[in-house]
Design a protein around this nucleic acid. Structure first.
Lengths: 224, 224
DNA sequence: GGATTTTATTATGTATACGTTAATGAGGGC
DNA sequence: GCCCTCATTAACGTATACATAATAAAATCC
């Protein structure tokens, strides 16, 4: 049970490493980087770097601009709105489907755990930990929905807003009401009330979208 | 006003050509093809073919299997269900958003035209033409929703079911009721009734999903 | 001095070369 | 006759080479 450090192709390593560099901010939003520069930095030739770049471009994280290099994509508020809307719909679908699965309490343990972790984090006013648990809740919800396309699309969308989310987290009021929503969704799933699960989660995500866009507006965050 | 035959990179040409070969069935579902073989076939080196392959793999059309070659992905009924569910959600969102835009009749002309085309096609019992117009209706609806992510995701999903859709078309009963739904959605958008637009379209797509899955079941179509 | 043409640079797109390694088949052991 | 070992093959992953085209720089002209 290692971290996954088997023998990996350089292309895969390049993807992972570039993602890390992007999410950590070492490659800032809007910055440009030549293929050869990145190749040197990662200690490999241009070929795998270029392949990784194309994959990241397909996932909407970067843009390949001939002669200008690889550009790390910045997100405008409109992008955030678009992405959150997609997540809202697909996660709500997941909640609905999850409710129809007849999951046992054991099946829902990760969801429950994530909610408890959020409570703990809130008590200690640990936003970092809260965000992590919140991510886990949403990821697990999507997982329970058992729709392969939703899973991959949601992962892509979450990736696209990862940087922005980390940034806006600090501006955000403590999400005290949030866990009520989560518990409601969990309960609806547990009791098999598909429609309620969908509606509750939809409302939850729509609220979150409103809060986020409010922050972007308030602090004039135009590209992140 | 050429067909777009400007100077295109070989990678782009490879993407287009491979897509054509896949959709036309010349590269059948489930078939394997070596990179070098495809390179020869397209008259270029492995490099651009490989890049194109990775892009198509990211879009879910093929799978890269080391030493086995590029495999054209076949779809199981579960995949169809997953994809149609995603389309249902995202198109319904589009309908809702479109209704909020306050579009004029002129803005909605393409949508109207698509509906009329479907009527015409039905009168002549021309399934091919009906399918084309139906595609246009759905594509235009997504366009009117003005969500960039929904647009690219929907395009991907439509691509993934393109082959299967062409195949199942012939098994399908004449979609006589379908245009009632379409007109209802159009009317809701025109009148700005966002919730109704969403609900009508959602029901429409859910029906379509049921019909399709029924066909797959009935004719034992397990991979297409 | 400013504008314009020419030259030089350089990042990319693509071809090619090559080592590695998984798949295939031959041959031998049981 | 079946299974295991080893040799062979060939497809891929990656590095490298190179032509092309775009940009920057330099030089020239008005």
């Amino acid at each position: 049970m290692d971290g996954g450090a088997k023998q990996m192709s350089n292309t895969q390593r390049a993807v992972e490493e570039l993602r890390r560099l992007i999410f950590s901010g070492e490659l800032g939003a809007g910055s440009d980087h030549l293929e050869s520069e990145l190749a040197d930095r990662l200690g490999m030739s241009r070929t795998p770097v270029r392949e990784a770049a194309m994959l990241l471009a397909a996932q909407g994280l970067v843009e390949m601009r001939p002669r200008k290099g690889l550009r790390v994509l910045a997100l405008a508020p409109d992008d955030m709105r678009d992405i959150y809307e997609v997540l809202t719909e697909l996660e709500s679908l997941s909640a609905e489907n999850a409710a129809r699965m007849g999951y046992s309490d054991a099946d829902l343990s990760k969801l429950t755990q994530a909610i408890n972790d959020m409570d703990d984090a809130l008590e200690h006013e640990n936003l970092e930990a809260w965000a992590l648990a919140d991510d886990q809740f949403h990821a697990e919800l999507v997982w329970l929905g058992k729709n392969s396309r939703v899973q991959s699309i949601a992962a892509m969308m979450v990736d696209q807003v990862r940087r922005a989310r980390a940034l806006t987290l600090q501006f955000r009021p403590l999400p005290l009401k949030s866990n009520q929503d989560h518990r409601g969704v969990l309960e609806a799933i547990r009791s098999g009330d598909a429609l309620k699960a969908r509606q509750l989660h939809h409302a939850h995500r729509t609220d979150a979208k409103g809060i986020l866009l409010g922050i972007l507006e308030k602090y004039r965050l135009r590209h992140l």
